[in-house]
């Protein structure tokens, strides 16, 4: 197992560098000059803009700039934000926990709703319960996030007064944003879980379990679900990028700090080091989560072996 993880980590390195190279290239395709934006409104003369560009190293050939970036990266230095003048790593570190918390809460919501609707749907296939469950979870993906968020606030914060409109530190403030985000993801889980359960329920070992006299619920939970979960977990791993996309919206509407809003602000301001930092961090999280998913296979499926 250790060797497997090590090999996977090593294999991830080219992807990490690929991502940094891609973001670097794209950033320099964006028309516009960060130095001019940084000095906007400062009464700086064109000469000062040129000298700032030089001091930021933006006048050097692209390859040299990238080399420099990678050199500093391997030394653990993500640079300094053009806008806030804070260290990129520090600023990302400050908001990362908020996004991670939101992501976890979202996954809990998505898994609860998705697995619930999926299991019930598979057990009562074709019945109105199946229809209602699937319909409910699909509704989550059909309603644009930004609209759903506002509707949730109107109902649960303004009308009913049960939950805060703003997402503050506590668990109460996490409920609406994570429901708003997780509901959409639940649809994918429901569908996958239901389909896989149906398939599993047709397998001989399930028939055997029935033959042994186990009740339907027990069969599903103890035998079929375990196998049906594997693709679900894989899928969740691939949702890391999507989570960030959703987080951009949800963070804006619920007034939460986080990576999503940080990234959008950085793109708008052409804050190169910050964009690079955020993309790198998200890519790393994506790779690590998917590695964790692969490792989780072993726990879920004894047939999988890592040599």
């Amino acid at each position: 197992m250790g060797a497997f993880i090590g090999r996977r980590l090593l294999a991830s390195l080219p992807i990490v560098f690929g991502v940094t190279a891609l973001v670097f290239l794209i950033l320099h395709l964006i028309p516009g000059d960060p130095a001019q934006i940084m000095l906007f409104g400062t009464d700086a003369t064109p000469d000062q803009i040129v000298s700032l560009r030089r001091s930021l190293g933006l006048d050097r050939p692209l390859l040299v700039q990238y080399g420099d970036f990678v050199w500093r990266l391997v030394h653990g230095d993500l640079g300094v934000s053009f806008i806030s003048q804070r260290r990129v790593a520090e600023e990302i570190g400050l908001v990362f926990p908020a996004t991670a918390t939101l992501a976890l809460a979202t996954m809990v919501v998505a898994a609860t709703v998705g697995l619930g609707a999926g299991i019930i749907g598979a057990m009562y296939r074709g019945s109105w319960i199946d229809l209602a469950g699937t319909g409910f979870s699909v509704l989550g993906v059909a309603v644009p996030n930004f609209w759903l968020s506002v509707l949730l606030i109107l109902v649960f914060a303004v009308r009913l007064g049960w939950l805060p409109a703003l997402s503050e530190g506590g668990a109460r403030g996490l409920i609406l944003p994570s429901v708003s985000l997780g509901w959409g993801f639940s649809a994918i889980i429901t569908r996958l879980c239901r389909a896989n359960l149906l398939e599993a329920l047709g397998q001989p070992y399930v028939s055997t379990a029935y033959a042994k006299g186990l009740r339907a619920g027990a069969v599903v939970v103890r035998h079929a679900l375990k196998n049906a979960l594997i693709p679900v977990v894989t899928l969740l791993g691939l949702q890391v990028g999507n989570l960030l996309s959703g987080a951009v919206v949800v963070e804006t509407i619920f007034g939460r700090q986080g990576l999503g809003s940080l990234a959008v602000r950085a793109i708008q301001a052409k804050d190169f080091p910050m964009i690079q930092g955020v993309v790198l961090v998200v890519a790393l999280v994506y790779l690590l989560v998917n590695l964790a998913v692969d490792v989780a296979y072993a726990a879920l499926d004894p047939r999988v072996r890592y040599g």
Binding site: V150, I153, L154, A157, G161, A165, L166, G255
Partner: peptide, 19 residues
Amino acid sequence: FRIIPDASTRFNALRTGEV
């Protein structure tokens, strides 16, 4: 000074008394 980028949320937070 609570930062709330969305106008409708600022309005709603005012109505719930959060701001």
